[in-house]
């Protein structure tokens, strides 16, 4: 059975008295342990889709299930990471990563004991007592992911998590994420602008159309794992990249119709 199922979910907003479609009905079934990427033009509704899965926004129609259990409109079932690290600046790194455990009612002491080995194992040893502003962007994103891992959800959503990092750091983070994904066997949904990143990380890539978004294509990434930097030079990698690039180019909004491509249902 698929782990996460999105059944015919769409999202409408009302803007200036007109119903405005942000996401067209989407159906997606994600198997347990898969790494899925979503690419598409900006504004096509990727973040809106994630907000619906995370329960922060209610879909206009459709249903979301996790292991067969309906979770539509409910928070706390999946992990969610954004481009902003969203660490609490007044807390140390250690106290930041335990926040989900604290919310669940675990004592700080016990939560810290559980978090310290994680921080040490995944590259943040020695930073436990530092505040986020003392860390680099990459290190802060690591802390953000460890916070999500300690929350221990099977499915994790990533919304352009490495978008603000420089190329060098981003590659490091991608390798680090692959390692963690492999060790923890999580199911990952990953939104990115970066085609290389999508191919390098994923089992499967969903390409979205421009707004209002729907699934345009589903591309299997049949590259062997484990992957490393040389994977990016393989002929198959470049072939996939070419395919995806052409698909995305078709979705570039035409400048003369700019801002008018939304589906307007009279209101």
């Amino acid at each position: 059975m698929s782990e996460l199922a999105i059944n015919h979910c769409s999202k409408y907003f009302k803007k200036d008295a007109i119903n405005f479609c942000a996401v067209q009905p989407i159906t997606m079934h994600v198997e347990s342990g898969q790494f899925i990427s979503i690419i598409g033009p900006s504004g096509c509704g990727k973040s809106t889709l994630f907000n619906m899965i995370a329960g922060l926004e209610r879909p206009s129609e459709g249903e979301i299930t996790l292991s067969g259990m309906p979770i539509t409109g409910e928070t706390g079932h999946v992990g969610y990471m954004l481009q902003k690290d969203l660490l609490l600046p007044w807390r140390t790194i250690l106290d930041n990563v335990i926040i989900a455990l604290e919310i669940r009612g675990m004592s700080r002491k016990e939560a810290r004991q559980r978090a310290i080995p994680m921080l040490q194992k995944y590259g943040l040893g020695g930073f436990e007592r530092d505040h986020p502003d003392a860390l680099s962007g990459g290190m802060r994103q690591r802390a953000g992911l460890i916070r999500t891992l300690l929350d221990d959800k099977q499915v994790i959503l990533f919304d352009e998590p490495f978008g603000a990092l420089d190329a060098q750091t981003r590659l490091q983070m991608q390798n680090w994420l692959l390692k963690i994904w492999n060790e923890f066997k999580k199911t990952v949904l990953f939104v990115t602008h970066d085609i290389d990143e999508a191919i390098y990380l994923s089992d499967e890539i969903y390409v979205f159309t421009k707004r209002p978004g729907r699934i345009k294509a589903k591309v299997q990434v049949d590259l062997a794992r484990p992957r490393n930097e040389t994977t990016m030079m393989e002929a198959r990698f470049l072939q996939l990249k070419r395919e995806l690039l052409l698909m995305l180019n078709e979705e570039r909004p035409h400048p003369e119709f700019d801002g008018n491509e939304g589906d307007a249902h009279g209101g």
């Binding site: 922060l56 954004l82 926040i99 919310i103």
Partner: peptide, 18 residues
């Protein structure tokens, strides 16, 4: 308050008092 911080906490399953 940074609304995204609130959003992050809620996505972790936090209630309003948290």
């Amino acid at each position: 308050i940074d609304k995204d911080l609130e959003k992050m906490l809620i996505s972790l399953g936090a209630k309003r008092h948290h």
